[in-house]
Amino acid sequence: MLTTYRLTEHHTAGGMSRFLSHLSELQPEMFAEISPELARELGVKNGDYICIVTLRGAIEARALVSRRIRPVHLNGKTVHQVGLPYHFGTSGLVRGGAANDLLSISGEPNVTIMEAKAAACNIVPGRLPRGAAFEEWINKHVPTGGPANLHPEQPPLDTAKGGENPPGGHGKEEKE
């Protein structure tokens, strides 16, 4: 379960903060906050690289392992939560993956605002492949386990190419 948030040191999409040295050096790189339990499960140490994959795309981030984010135990099922700051992009003094690459375009009925605070995602330890290898890699790791429920207008999951995706679950298999 992915949630996004803001940092004090940066400003929204980063245009007014990623280009300033005094602000960029306070938060120089894209990171993802994960709980120690999830880190142990994925075999990831504090500071390693992890990739966050959703239906829409994938980005890489440094893993910040901290007790400040905790798994939620809902009647027997454990839901891991991952925190992602916005702010980063591909230009400026400091760069990183843009959390918005992962979010879906969905319109709230009254004001068509997107749902940015809760989305399903998959975590794969290691770095994001670049160049052409990206396409094939992402097919392997797309979260087919995905949401238990489907909104009537949500596209059925089988439209995702590459049928041989391993059954879902939170990145347990992708430990390589």
Binding site: S17, F19, L20, S21, H22, L23, L93
Partner: peptide, 17 residues
Amino acid sequence: LCPKGAASYQLLTHSRR
């Protein structure tokens, strides 16, 4: 001010502008 507000001077005068 907050850190961003305090960096307003650099926002207007930094070399990448």
